[in-house]
Design a protein around this nucleic acid. Structure first.
Length: 261
DNA sequence: CGTGGCTCCTGGCGGC
DNA sequence: TGCCGCCAGGAGCCAC
């Protein structure tokens, strides 16, 4: 589920389970998910250390260690966290297991193995190296509007472009545009100042609501697209949602509400 | 630059 | 039941 809202949920889960305990052992079941670091190096940084805090940026979670290193977690399409007792509930898809001294385990699960795990001593440098745009939940309206200066291309791929703005994925891009009455194929250059304001406000609203609903789309009220986003689904006004491919990704929108300019 | 296509990998679902 | 094709919340790379 990993768009910004799930990342925020993961962060809270991590903070409430995994801080301030000595790391005793690392089980690295799939070293191929490591990002620019060897298994031994990762283990050397983690074993004997402890997490003291965490920070989310876009779709990345940084777990801060007392020794001033930071574990980087990227969840791909199917990543998640699971904290459990050492004695039970090992996930078959655990790619890395972090065993704490008191007998509990944090599993990084990821069936499809699109996730990545790494380590950095400098989070800002990592963000700059990845060339990530500003975080979607921590940008003010004027800087947001400025991002659109001289931008071409369609609005939906732009919202999903992590170099442009960090945190929005396929589902929430659809929701934000639906709430804003903007067609996903609208050219960025055709958006008015008012359109950008509306998109900005809906981006904030949608992401916050999604966090509030624990990123569980089945809990979304009917005025949200995500409550009806499946083949044959109808929006709250009874209009059948249309499906398009935009930037290679399946896109749902309401043809009545979201008119192309 | 911007875009479209392909790739990594695995599981779940619908259709035959 | 078994097999097959298609699809999936991400993102990097490459060719045009």
């Amino acid at each position: 589920m990993p768009e910004l809202p799930s990342l925020e949920i993961f962060k809270r889960y991590f903070d409430s389970t995994s801080l301030n305990q000595r790391i005793e052992e690392i089980k690295l079941n799939n070293p191929e998910i490591l990002l620019d670091i060897s298994s031994n190096e990762l283990k050397n940084n983690l074993i004997g250390a402890e997490f003291i805090s965490s920070m989310r940026y876009g779709k990345y979670l940084f777990a801060n260690l007392k020794n001033s290193m930071n574990l980087i977690l990227h969840f791909g399409m199917t990543g998640s966290l699971k904290y459990h007792s050492k004695t039970l509930d090992y996930s078959p898809h655990s790619r890395i297991s972090i065993l704490f001294e008191k007998g509990n385990v944090l599993d990084f699960e990821d069936p499809r193995k699109f996730g990545k795990i790494g380590m950095t001593s400098d989070i800002n440098q990592f963000i700059a190296m990845k060339n990530l745009g500003p975080d979607a939940l921590n940008i003010a309206i004027n800087p947001f509007k400025k991002l659109f200066k001289n931008r071409k291309g369609n609005i939906k791929p732009l919202l999903m472009n992590q170099h442009f703005i960090a945190g929005i994925g396929n589902l929430y891009a659809d929701e934000i545009l639906y709430q804003s009455n903007i067609h996903p194929l609208t050219k960025a250059g055709d958006l008015t100042d008012d359109d950008l304001k509306i998109i900005y406000e809906n981006m904030q609203m949608v992401l916050k609501k999604a966090i509030y609903f624990q990123d569980n789309t089945s809990k979304f009220p009917p005025e949200f697209l995500l409550a009806h986003r499946y083949p044959g689904g109808k929006c709250i006004e009874g209009e059948k949602l249309d499906i398009l491919k935009v930037g290679g990704r399946t896109t749902y929108y309401c043809p009545k509400k979201q008119i192309k300019k």
